[in-house]
Write a protein that binds this DNA or RNA. Structure first.
Length: 860
RNA sequence: GCGGGCGUGGCGGAAUUGGUAGACGCGCUUGACUCAAAAUCAAGUUUCCUCUGGAAGUGGGAGUUCGAGUCUCCCCGCCCGCACCA
C-alpha cells in the first residue's frame, strides 16, 4: 500500500513544491484591491498557534480552499487570507512549564504551522497574514476600545464574576460549563471585581431579529443563538411588604418588585421569593443569623455541579408578608430561595405552584397552597399532582379573568395593571453584558490608566499601542503585569501625577471579533481602511467548527455593529454565509490496563489480533472518537502529507463523509485516496501524448462520452455550490470511469475535452496534480488561473430514455423510449413486456399512470 | 426537563425532493499479469428462496397514495445543544 518512487507513480514530492513555488512567484492568489470582477471573501476560522496543525485544520482549510479556488475559476476576485489567534493561556502555561517566553513560544509555533499549512498548497494570500499578538494588530484593537468607550458601548462596574481558581482569571458566562472553567475544569467561584463590559445586551433584540436574515447560516446555529439571547415577554410589578406581626417593613424595603411571564396565574400565587443576593435578603440577614447562614450556603453552592444535579429547592421564611394585588386582605409569605437568580428579571418572583414546576417543588416541600387557576378544557376532575400544568386552558378562581384563555388573560391583566399604573410590560433577555477583563499577561492590554485624582483615564490615542512588556517572569501565580514596576506605574496623562496602568488584558474573544475586517487592509494605519472594508465585507463564506456557534459568532456579530457605530465598518452582519464542519474521529486503542495507545503503536500480531508494536501486549479497540491528545488517537497531518502528498490528504478529507458530519480517519481511506490520485495521473498522462492539439473541437460522433463529460461539469458545479464535496468526489470518480471505459482510441477531440475537464473539475480539490496534468495536456498556463468549464445543456439531453415499468406499483421491468415519448407509444411497449403480461395474469387494465421520462404504472 | 438532529448493504455514504433503492468509494470474492508478493487490469458483491426465475427489503408499527427511504401519526434507539431565565 505504501507509496514508493516507482516511475509508474505520481511523484508528488517534486510536483507539489514546484507548483507552490510557481503560484507564489505568479502571485496567483493575491486579489486585486480595485477590480471590475465581483468580489468573494472566503474565510476559515483562524487557528490558535498551539504547536502543530491537526487534522481538523486540514479539513477546515481544505474546504475553504476548494471554495476559494472554485470561485476564482468562476471569475470572482477572491480574498482568502490566513492569520493567527495568537493570544491566550496555553502560551502562559508553556511559559510556566517550559521556562520559555509566551511570545517566543507563540512565534515559534506560528512558524511551524505556517510551514505546515504551506505544504497543503492552500490558495492563500500570505501577504495579508496577521497575528493578534502583534502590536500592529492589537494597537488598533486598543484604538477601537477607546472609540467604543467614548461611544458608550463599554462601561466599568463592580461585578460578581466567575473566578477560575486554577487559571487565576475571570471567566465569561459562556466560558463556564457545568459550573466549571472551560479550560481548567476547576469549579468556578464567585468574586466581586471591577470589570470592563461591552454593552452587548443593548443589541440583544437586534442580534435576535437579524438571525432571520442570515439565510446561509445553519438553522441549528441560529437556534442556538436565539436560545442564548433568550428573549421573554412579561410583566413587572411590585408587592407591598409588611413586617412581622403586621409591623412595618424594613426601611426602604416596603415594595418587592417581581417579573413574571405568567401574570395570568396571579390568583394562584401562594408565596413570594427573592434571590439570596437580593438587597432585601442582605438587609434581613443583619438581624437573622439563620438567614445569613442560609445565604452564605447558597453562595457557596451557587454554581457547583452538585447543586444543579440534585436541584433541590430550598428556602428560608423571612417572616415578612406581601399583599396580594387583587385579593383584598390576602397576604403571601416571603422566602429567600436558592433557585431565584439575581441576574434575571428583578431577582424576585411570585410563586404559582400549580403552573410552574419549580414553584410546585418548593410549595410541596414547605406545605404551601397549590391552587390551579388554568384548567384544561374537558377535564372536570382536573387536579395537580407532582407535575405542574403549563398547557393551555381556561382561567378559573381568578375573578375578572375567569373563562379567558391564557393569552387573553395575560393581555387583560397587563392592560389592567398598566392602566392603574401598578405594573408595566417588560421584555427580558437571558443574554448578559460581555465581561472582557482578564487577569492575564498574554493578551491585549486594556488602554486605560487609573489616577487617584482623575479616576479612569483613557490612554491618549497618540500613545497607542500600549505594548506588552517583554521582561516578565512566570515563577509565581497570577498576572506578571501586576508585578512589573515600570510598566504598571506611570504618570497620569491628564494631571501628570503618579498613576497606575490597568493590568488586565482583553478576553481573547475580542481579538477574534474583528480579524476578518483587518484582513481587508492588514497594513492600514487605522483599524480598518473603510474603502477596503466596504469592498470586501461581509465575508461571503465563513467555515469553522460548531463549537463556536455561540461565543465567537455572537461576539463578532455584536462587534461588527459596534464598529459600525464608531465608524470602523459599514455593516451589521460580518458573515453572510456560514458552514460548520464535522470533527475528525479515529478509533481508540487501549491496553488491558486501560492505557491509551497511539495508532502507530498498534499492529496485527500472530493470528490477526491487535497487539502493541513494542510490548506485544494485547490491544482492545474502542469506538471512534474525536482525535485528541488525551486519547492518543491522533494522526499527524505532516506525516500524511510527507507520505502521500497534500493532494491525497485533501482528496480524502473531501471523500465519503458529508462535510458537516464527523469524518472517520482510516488507513484504508487515505490509501484509497492515494490510489485515485495515481489512477487519475495515469489516465491523463498515458493518453496525453497521442491527443490532437489543444483547442481541437470534440467530434460529433462521441455523444455518449461528451454527455458523461458535460453531466460531470453540471453535477460537480452544483455540488460545489451546495457544499456537497463528497458527491462532487463521486462524480469525478464516475467521469474517470467513463474516460477509462472510452479507451485510448476514443475520438481524440472528445477525449481531450474529457481529460481537460476532469483536470479542471479536480483542480480545486487536488490543485498540484491538476497543474501537473494541465501541463501534460500541453498547456503553458496555470489551471489555477483558468476558467471553470461550462456545461453545454444541449449535450445533456438524451435522445432516448430508459423508464421504469410498474404493475400496481411493483417494478416489472424497463423500456427504452424516445425522450418525451407520448403515452400511447410507452403504453404499447410496456404492455408488450413479457413480465408485464405475466403480472397482469389476464386481468383487464383499469388505468395507466404515465410520467414522461420517469415511469409508467399499469393498474389492473 | 426544553430545543434540534439522525437511523439505508460488512463499512462510509448516494437517491433529480413522492417516480428503477443501494450511485461513488472502502472492504471482500474470483480471474489475468507475476517465480511470488505489491501495484495494476477484468468480473462479481442487499438478503433470502424451490435460482434461465421469484420474494422480501431503507430502526419497528400503522396510515395517505397508482406509487413512500422521502409525507402523516405512534413507538424504539443513538447523537448534539441549553439547562433553576420566573
Amino acid at each position: 500500500m505504501a507509496p514508493d518512487d516507482a516511475p509508474s507513480r505520481y511523484a508528488f514530492k517534486d510536483a507539489e513544491s514546484r507548483w507552490q513555488t510557481e503560484w507564489e512567484s505568479a502571485g496567483t492568489f493575491r486579489p486585486d484591491d480595485i477590480s471590475d470582477l465581483p468580489k468573494y471573501y472566503v474565510l476559515e476560522m483562524f487557528p490558535y498557534p498551539s504547536g502543530r496543525i491537526h487534522m481538523g485544520h486540514v479539513r477546515n482549510y481544505t474546504m475553504g480552499d476548494v471554495v476559494a479556488r472554485y470561485k476564482r475559476a468562476r471569475g470572482y476576485n477572491v480574498l482568502h487570507p490566513m492569520g493567527w489567534d495568537a493570544f491566550g493561556m496555553p502560551a502562559e502555561n508553556a511559559a510556566m512549564e517550559k521556562k520559555i517566553h509566551p511570545a517566543a513560544w507563540t512565534y515559534e509555533n506560528i512558524d511551524t504551522m505556517r510551514r505546515q499549512l504551506k505544504m497543503m498548497g492552500l490558495s492563500i494570500d500570505w501577504d495579508r497574514e496577521i497575528a493578534t499578538c502583534h502590536p500592529d494588530y492589537y494597537g488598533h484593537e486598543q484604538k477601537m476600545f477607546l472609540d467604543m468607550l467614548a461611544a458608550g458601548l463599554i462601561y466599568r462596574r463592580e461585578a460578581w464574576v466567575n473566578w477560575d481558581p486554577v487559571d487565576h482569571t475571570v471567566l465569561a458566562n459562556e466560558q463556564v460549563i457545568d459550573g466549571r472553567g472551560w479550560r481548567s475544569g476547576a469549579p468556578v467561584e464567585k468574586r466581586l471585581l471591577s470589570q470592563w463590559f461591552f454593552r452587548i445586551t443593548e443589541y440583544a433584540q437586534e442580534l435576535l431579529d437579524a438571525l432571520s436574515t442570515l439565510e446561509r447560516w445553519p438553522e441549528k446555529v441560529r437556534l442556538m443563538q436565539a436560545n442564548w439571547i433568550g428573549r421573554s415577554e412579561g410583566l413587572r410589578f411590585a408587592f407591598d411588604v409588611f413586617g412581622k406581626e403586621a409591623a412595618a417593613a424594613p426601611a426602604g424595603f416596603d415594595k418587592i418588585e417581581v417579573y413574571t411571564t405568567r401574570p395570568d396565574t396571579i390568583f394562584g400565587a401562594s408565596f413570594c421569593a427573592i434571590s439570596p443576593e437580593h438587597a432585601l435578603a442582605g438587609k434581613l440577614a443583619e438581624n437573622d443569623p439563620a438567614l445569613a447562614a442560609f445565604i452564605e450556603e447558597c453562595g457557596r453552592m451557587g454554581t457547583s455541579e452538585a447543586v444543579i444535579e440534585q436541584a433541590e429547592k430550598k428556602g428560608h421564611d423571612t417572616g415578612l408578608r406581601v399583599k396580594h394585588p387583587f385579593i383584598e386582605g390576602h397576604t403571601l409569605p416571603v422566602y429567600v430561595a436558592n433557585f431565584i437568580l439575581m441576574e434575571y428579571g428583578t431577582g424576585a418572583i411570585f410563586g404559582c405552584p400549580a403552573h410552574d414546576q419549580r414553584d410546585l417543588d418548593f410549595a410541596r416541600k414547605y406545605g404551601l397552597d397549590v391552587l390551579p387557576v388554568v384548567v384544561p378544557e374537558d377535564e372536570p376532575d382536573f387536579a395537580i399532582g407532582d407535575t405542574a400544568y403549563t398547557g393551555p386552558g381556561k382561567l378559573a378562581h381568578s375573578e375578572f379573568l375567569d373563562g379567558l384563555d391564557v393569552d387573553a388573560a395575560k393581555t387583560a391583566i397587563a392592560d389592567r395593571m398598566e392602566a392603574a399604573g401598578t405594573g408595566r410590560r417588560e421584555v427580558n433577555f437571558r443574554l448578559r453584558d460581555w465581561g472582557i477583563s482578564r487577569q492575564r499577561y498574554w493578551g491585549c492590554p486594556i488602554p486605560v490608566i487609573h489616577c487617584g485624582d482623575c479616576g479612569v483615564v483613557p490612554v491618549p490615542a497618540s500613545d497607542l499601542p500600549v505594548v506588552l512588556p517583554d521582561d516578565v517572569t512566570f515563577d509565581t501565580p497570577g498576572n506578571p503585569l501586576e508585578r512589573h514596576p515600570t510598566w504598571k506605574n506611570v504618570d497620569c496623562p491628564t494631571c501628570g501625577k503618579a498613576a497606575r496602568r490597568e493590568t488586565d488584558t482583553f478576553d481573547t474573544f475580542v481579538d477574534s471579533s474583528w480579524y476578518f475586517a483587518r484582513f481587508c487592509s492588514p497594513g492600514a494605519d487605522a483599524p480598518t481602511d473603510r474603502a477596503a472594508a466596504d469592498y470586501w465585507l461581509p465575508v461571503d463564506q465563513y467555515i469553522g467548527g460548531i463549537e463556536h456557534a455561540i461565543l465567537h459568532l455572537l461576539y463578532s456579530r455584536f462587534f461588527t455593529r459596534a464598529m459600525k457605530r464608531t465608524g470602523h465598518a459599514g455593516l451589521d452582519e460580518p458573515f453572510a454565509g456560514l458552514f460548520t464542519q464535522g470533527m475528525i474521529c479515529h478509533e481508540t486503542y487501549r491496553t488491558e490496563k486501560g492505557e491509551w495507545v497511539e495508532p502507530a503503536n498498534v499492529v496485527e500480531g500472530d493470528g490477526g489480533a491487535l497487539v502493541h508494536a513494542e510490548t506485544g501486549a494485547p490491544i482492545k479497540t474502542g469506538r471512534s472518537e474525536k482525535m485528541s491528545k488525551s486519547k492518543k488517537n491522533v494522526i499527524d497531518p505532516e506525516d500524511i502529507i510527507t507520505t502521500y502528498g497534500a493532494d491525497t490528504a485533501r482528496w480524502f478529507m473531501l471523500s465519503d463523509s458529508p462535510p458537516d458530519r464527523d469524518l472517520d480517519w482510516t488507513e484504508a481511506g487515505i490509501a484509497g485516496a492515494w490510489r485515485f490520485v495515481n489512477r487519475l495521473w495515469r489516465l491523463v498522462t498515458s493518453r496525453a501524448g497521442s491527443l490532437p492539439p489543444a483547442g481541437t473541437a470534440p467530434e460529433a460522433d462521441a455523444a455518449d462520452l461528451r454527455r458523461a463529460v458535460h453531466a460531470a461539469i453540471a453535477g460537480v458545479t452544483e455540488d460545489l455550490e451546495a457544499f456537497h464535496f463528497n458527491r462532487a468526489v463521486a462524480r469525478i470518480h464516475e467521469l474517470a470511469n467513463a474516460l477509462s471505459d472510452a479507451g485510448a482510441d476514443a475520438p481524440g477531440g472528445a477525449l481531450r475535452e474529457g481529460l481537460e475537464t476532469i483536470t479542471a473539475l479536480a483542480a480545486p480539490m487536488m490543485p498540484h496534480l491538476a497543474e501537473e496534468l494541465w501541463k501534460a495536456l500541453g498547456h503553458e498556463t496555470l489551471i489555477a488561473e483558468s476558467p471553470w468549464p461550462e456545461a453545454d445543456p444541449a449535450l445533456l439531453i438524451q435522445d432516448s430514455v430508459e423508464i421504469a415499468v410498474q404493475v400496481r406499483g411493483k417494478m416489472r421491468g424497463t423500456i427504452e423510449v424516445a425522450r418525451d415519448a407520448d403515452q400511447a407509444t410507452a403504453e404499447e411497449m410496456a404492455l408488450a413486456l413479457p413480465t408485464v403480461v405475466a403480472a397482469l395474469d389476464g386481468n383487464a387494465v383499469k388505468r395507466i399512470i404515465y410520467v414522461p421520462n420517469r415511469i409508467i404504472n399499469v393498474i389492473h
